Amino acid sequence: ETIMEVNLLKGPKGLGFSIAGGIGNQHIPGDNSIYITKIIEGGAAQKDGRLQIGDRLLAVNNTNLQDVRHEEAVASLKNTSDMVYLKVAKP
């Protein structure tokens, strides 16, 4: 597993990826991690090219996303300014 830091500039459609996982909404049984499950065509993440489906999202800005509820992860992604710092684990 490789840890990678990505600074992503939000586009008109936001960050351009979808997530799944978290406490109460496990993407993988027994694993509370938050995973990237979709990269949106023409979105910021696709244009940047570094994020991939299956990457594990560890942090957004200063918010640690390990062992959080799905709703908390979504809220932390929404409550960001235009430049967003992401910390991901690549499988």
Rank of each mutant, 00 (worst) to 15 (best):
G54L: 03
G54W: 04
D31G: 04
L9Q: 09
R69E: 10
K47G: 08
I28N: 10
R56I: 15
D31W: 02
S33M: 14
P12T: 08
N79K: 15
S76Q: 13
R50K: 10
S76G: 10
H70P: 09
N32C: 11
L65H: 01
P29C: 14
Q26K: 05
A20V: 14
S76V: 13
V74H: 12
I19A: 05
T37P: 01
Q26P: 08
K90Q: 15
V88S: 03
Q52L: 08
L58Y: 10
L9M: 07
D48W: 02
M4L: 06
L65W: 03
A20I: 09
P91F: 02
A89Y: 12
K13D: 07
G24F: 11
A75S: 09
E5H: 08
G54P: 00
Q52K: 14
D55W: 14
K90V: 04
Y35C: 04
Q46K: 14
I23Y: 12
A45D: 00
L8N: 01
A45K: 00
A45S: 07
E41F: 09
D82V: 07
N64H: 14
N32H: 10
Q46D: 10
K10T: 07
P29G: 12
E1T: 13
D48Y: 02
I39Q: 02
I53F: 12
L86P: 01
N61I: 01
N25E: 10
D67L: 08
V6I: 14
G30H: 14
I3M: 11
I40K: 11
T63F: 08
G43E: 11
E71Q: 06
S81I: 13
T2S: 11
N62W: 04
I19W: 13
R50F: 05
K47L: 13
I23W: 12
P12Q: 10
G42P: 04
F17Y: 01
G30W: 04
L51C: 06
P12E: 11
A59Q: 13
T37E: 06
Y85W: 13
G14Y: 02
I28R: 13
Q52Y: 07
V74I: 08
G16Y: 00
R50L: 08
I39V: 10
D67M: 09
N61E: 15
I40S: 14
L51D: 00
N64C: 09
P12D: 14
L58W: 05
L77V: 10
K13W: 09
L86K: 00
V74Q: 05
G42W: 07
N64K: 10
K78R: 10
G22S: 03
V84E: 01
Y35P: 00
E71L: 08
A73E: 00
I23R: 11
G16E: 03
Q26Y: 05
A44V: 08
F17G: 00
K13L: 09
G11S: 09
R69A: 10
S76E: 15
Q26C: 15
L77E: 01
E5F: 09
L8Q: 01
R56S: 12
A89V: 12
K87E: 06
A59M: 09
E71F: 03
I36K: 00
G16D: 02
L57P: 00
K47M: 07
G49F: 02
M83E: 08
I3F: 06
V88K: 01
E72G: 06
M83R: 14
S33H: 09
I19N: 00
Y85D: 12
L65F: 10
E5V: 12
I53C: 13
I19E: 00
G42Y: 08
G22N: 02
D82Y: 03
P91V: 07
K87F: 03
K87A: 03
L57I: 08
K13P: 04
G54A: 06
G54H: 06
L57W: 00
D82N: 05
Q66N: 05
K38R: 14
K90W: 02
R50N: 09
S33A: 10
P91L: 04
G49A: 07
K47E: 06
V88T: 11
G24C: 09
G42F: 08
K47H: 10
L57Q: 01
T2K: 15
K78S: 06
G30K: 06
G43D: 09
G30F: 04
S33D: 13
T2D: 15
N7H: 12
R50I: 06
G30T: 06
N79H: 14
V60K: 01
K90G: 10
I36W: 00
D48F: 05
N61R: 02
